[in-house]
């Protein structure tokens, strides 16, 4: 029942997001143009400065490809991941609790966001354009995107679940913006405490930098570590949401989450 229920929810979310086809295509196009502007920025930057701490244009474009595809997929397919804090704080989870499906799974797949499909389209396009498409590199890219996807989802659910205790959803929003911002830059430009933070509590390194380095130069140890971190954040998200639900107070708002 649970798997069928999830599949049906995904189907309904996708039907909803593409119900206005013109708007869907406009939003995807806008995001593609937005992402292209980032590529222009980095191309101009590296054209002027050469390389920075081992990062050159091609490496950063690989980083962007992984980041845009992985993070874009989270924000497009699991749009509620960024809203967990608000839903919890405003008591809008009632509908999810009444269904014969795991509440977190339902909440995550319930909504999609049209505009971030543009990130996924552009990220994949960038990967195809930037590097060679050998089977090994393609497999590394898929693994990198998958771990980036899981780390970001787990992180967003974890910080969003703070709202069960704090009563406010700002932490999730702030966490999202901070992690996305840091993840869009090469990790080695940071040093000291900031770098440590990006490998731990604010795992931007595992959303873009580390996965991109696995695509560029596959290393089994790094890949295993990356998957381990993804498992950790998946578990952290599930555990913190489940623990938080025990403190959930209904807002008597019967939405579809």
């Amino acid at each position: 029942m649970s798997a069928r229920g999830i599949a049906a929810t995904i189907g309904s979310a996708f039907a909803e997001v593409r119900s206005n086809r013109a708007s869907f295509l406009t939003q995807v196009t806008v995001m593609v143009l937005n992402d292209a502007a980032w590529v222009v920025f980095w191309a101009i930057f590296f054209d002027r400065v050469g390389s920075v701490r081992g990062w050159d244009r091609d490496r950063v474009l690989t980083l962007l490809a992984v980041f845009m595809t992985g993070a874009g997929a989270v924000l497009a397919l699991l749009a509620n991941a960024r809203r967990v804090g608000k839903l919890a704080a405003d008591g809008e989870l009632d509908a999810a609790l009444a269904l014969p499906i795991r509440p977190l799974a339902y909440v995550l797949v319930r909504r999609m966001d049209a505009i971030n499909f543009g990130d996924v389209v552009f990220g994949v396009f960038l990967f195809v354009v930037v590097g060679d498409l050998s089977p090994g590199r393609v497999a590394s890219f898929v693994l990198a995107v998958a771990t980036s996807f899981v780390v970001l989802t787990g992180f967003l659910v974890t910080v969003g679940s703070i709202a069960f205790y704090a009563g406010k959803g700002e932490a999730g929003d702030f966490g999202l913006h901070a992690v996305l911002l840091f993840a869009s830059y090469p990790i080695d430009i940071f040093s000291g405490g900031t770098k440590l933070l990006l490998y731990t509590a604010l795992p931007a390194a595992f959303i873009s930098g580390v996965p991109a380095s696995v695509v560029d130069d596959f290393d089994l140890t790094r890949a295993v570590a990356m998957v381990g971190v993804a498992c950790f954040f998946a578990l952290a998200g599930a555990v913190s949401f489940r623990a938080g639900l025990k403190r959930y107070a209904s807002g008597s708002v019967w939405t579809r989450a």
Binding site: V52, R53, D173, F174, Y185, I189, T194
Partner: peptide, 27 residues
């Protein structure tokens, strides 16, 4: 709370882009 979030976000952005340019000038 919103002011605090904005200020913190500002510090993060300046730190990130400032680090990038510091790395660039070093090179």
């Amino acid at each position: 709370a919103a002011v605090l979030v904005k200020l913190t976000f500002y510090v993060i952005v300046v730190t990130a882009i400032g680090s990038l340019w510091r790395g660039a000038t070093d090179s």
